[in-house]
């Protein structure tokens, strides 16, 4: 079973929920950090990074001795990543999405594909939790292929919690695709409600069952609760607004370790999400 934790807006407690949840499960569990632009889950775990795998995308390399400068590759490329001015084409690696089209259309077979690094995937073991983390290279705009690489660590049937990137754009979809259910974390504020509504709209397109965690309950109003009731989305956990939680977080400590009175909340969430994955949330 794969449970994705996501949010329409960053900083709502998505990583907090994912890591605390992984922590209380007790049995072996994969925690997969798909927030490759800002991976943070490791900051809350104690362990050493082990293996590191470099991830790249295939980009074209032109054999000038074979190229006759016909320019077909440049006419084909939708991304302007390869372009010819009547001689051997120039390649612009950072624009290439790695579709392989230029190599396929080249009549002289003058293009072969080589790897271009976009980031790394690292693994950390912290007790029963195995963290798989993708880290995008600074300045590289290609998050989805790295997220796909991170997700190859998901093996058949092994339980996994997936920390998705914030927002509703393509990297989020790449992350939550194939999840059995999605937990959306939201704050009960006007920003929180607005971004939750966008996230729900997007998640509905993917057809994955949804549940909501309301973080910092008590700071705003009850419109997020009302929204969930109206949309028929179960509220699976309410985390109270407690300055001590924010302080523990600031030091990189987990709520369930620093404030044991909250441990039960996450245990209940773990039970509910495991059960609801079997039964299908929101159906």
């Amino acid at each position: 079973m794969i449970l994705a934790v996501a949010s329409g807006k960053g900083g709502t407690g998505k990583t907090t929920v994912a890591v605390n949840l992984a922590r209380v499960v007790g049995s072996p569990i994969l925690l997969v950090d798909c927030d490759v632009e800002e991976p943070n889950a490791h900051l809350f775990l104690e362990g050493e990074f082990g293996e590191e795998e470099v991830v790249g995308i295939p980009i074209p390399e032109v054999d000038k001795s074979l190229c006759d400068g016909c320019g077909e590759c440049g006419r084909f490329c939708e991304y302007r990543a390869i372009v010819s001015f009547g001689e051997a084409p120039l390649v612009f690696p950072e624009l290439c999405h790695g579709c392989g089209g230029c190599a396929l259309v080249c009549p002289k077979r003058a293009i072969r594909e080589v790897e271009r690094r976009i980031g790394v995937v690292r693994t950390m073991r912290a007790g029963p939790v195995t963290l798989i983390q993708g880290v995008l290279d600074v300045g590289s705009p290609m998050a989805p292929p790295l997220i796909r690489a991170v997700k190859t660590s998901l093996r058949n049937g092994e339980p996994a919690i997936l920390d998705a990137p914030p927002g509703t754009s393509c990297p989020v979809v790449a992350a939550v695709r194939d999840a059995d259910s999605v937990l959306l974390v939201a704050e009960p504020t006007p920003f929180g409600l607005h971004d939750l509504a966008l996230a729900v709209e997007m998640m509905r397109e993917t057809g994955v069952p949804l549940g909501v965690v309301i973080n910092r309950c008590g700071i705003g109003d009850d419109r997020v609760h009302a929204f969930c009731a109206r949309e028929g989305i179960p509220v699976l956990l309410e985390i109270p607004d407690d300055r001590r939680i924010a302080e523990a977080y600031s030091r990189g400590r987990l709520i369930v370790d620093a404030l044991p009175e909250y441990r039960r909340l996450f245990e209940v969430l773990a039970e509910k999400t495991l059960r609801s994955v079997r039964e299908g949330v929101g159906e």
Partner: peptide, 18 residues
Amino acid sequence: PTVSGVHDLKRILALARH
């Protein structure tokens, strides 16, 4: 001022410098 905040700050500063 959180561990995540410090971590992300370094990345965004690197980007601005880049």
